[in-house]
Design a protein around this nucleic acid. Sequence first.
DNA 1: GAGTGGTCTAGACCACCCT
DNA 2: GGGTGGTCTAGACCACTCC
Lengths: 234, 234
Amino acid sequence: MNKSLQFSSSLHESVREEISKRISQGIYVPGEPIPSTAMLSGEFGVSAITIKRALRDLQAAGMIFAVPGKGTYVKKQRRLLHHLDLRAPGRASQSKVRPMSVTREKISDPTMSAIDAPDKVMLCVRKIVLFEDAPWMYDATYVSSELDDEIVEEFRERFVVDALKRHDINVTNTRLVIDAAPASGQVAEVFGVPNGFPMLRRLYRMITTEPHITVYGVVQAPFDQLACTIDLAP
Amino acid sequence: MNKSLQFSSSLHESVREEISKRISQGIYVPGEPIPSTAMLSGEFGVSAITIKRALRDLQAAGMIFAVPGKGTYVKKQRRLLHHLDLRAPGRASQSKVRPMSVTREKISDPTMSAIDAPDKVMLCVRKIVLFEDAPWMYDATYVSSELDDEIVEEFRERFVVDALKRHDINVTNTRLVIDAAPASGQVAEVFGVPNGFPMLRRLYRMITTEPHITVYGVVQAPFDQLACTIDLAP
DNA sequence: GAGTGGTCTAGACCACCCT
DNA sequence: GGGTGGTCTAGACCACTCC
């Protein structure tokens, strides 16, 4: 090997650590491609496959991303903090929203049972919340399928809380579950992350002033793109 | 190929989906090893390497784990919900604690700056919180290094809030940041998860009745093992 | 000793991008 | 056409576990 590598239990780990070090040291910078696998293979004196293995692990850690046919780039780290305000939950936001779909289906996520989601067919509104024209959060909202079509139409363009408020329906109680889960299928495509990429999720149940209207949902984003903050004052 | 596989863009994805399906259908059950890579390679008619690739992705998703020399097993899903009570933050718990280390160091995690962690050498107490004798959470607590040795010693065996309370020091304000991050180094070893495995984290800053005592820290656990719940009532 | 998962390699093919 | 990342293969070696 041309370059002396870190001492680590395996080759691909050593390579990963070395590349990771170069990123944190600013040798590889966001916006510019890092050397190709062939170049790195030559420099480190290891097989191209081992390089690819190391790069794939760095992708899973959110440090880099690869564009087939072009190259591998350092990710620009920009994580937004979403503050959960106890007094104004689900506050309005100036973010833009891109509607995705409106369907009728059962809630399938097992974690939703932790907030007592009903096991019946509901109306599901999916949308993408944008920040600076890039996908920031993916939201799936479930409401009773007996709701007026008029309100449902507004769900596509607005946040649920805002739409309800326009009909004098207010949220009285919100229960949240915050967890992480691997991205699957459509969600992974939307954010351009590999299948299985860790997502930070916020599952919610909102009880309203209308006894028969309870809103359930999941909002999620790649873990390197979102964090939640909370203030607790007893 | 002997078996017809799902239609998916790549072979290892098809294999992953098929095995994933068998787990959710109960064909492969927790506690028993799934067929070896050689067996699966024969059954699906694909290379052993492709099988290993699929299994590695399923490990990253927390569905299975592998024991070298023995076999690959389905993970028993058991996720604990940690309820964040607004009125009694950092409440006492009957969990057992295993002390890990006490050092003096700077806070290195960049996310800690979101809760205004100071950039100076502090006292760091690391411990493992156990549940049914298995590692459940990993905690790193930072306090001013000028604290009495007497209190520091108690930090090893108790929760920080409890130790402080015994000295009539109470928490007046808590700020949390909840995020996800890849496991690295020692933390990955403690939980027996592969390097880079997604961890759910809760970073905290606790202001106390003693003006010069502010407690910082991070508690984290594998994403498939922990979730947080919160109730918001305006 | 046989079986297991983990690692590493050399070589090949593809789809894509850029010039 | 040359470079890129992504995929797949066959084959090899190692450390480990279990019998």
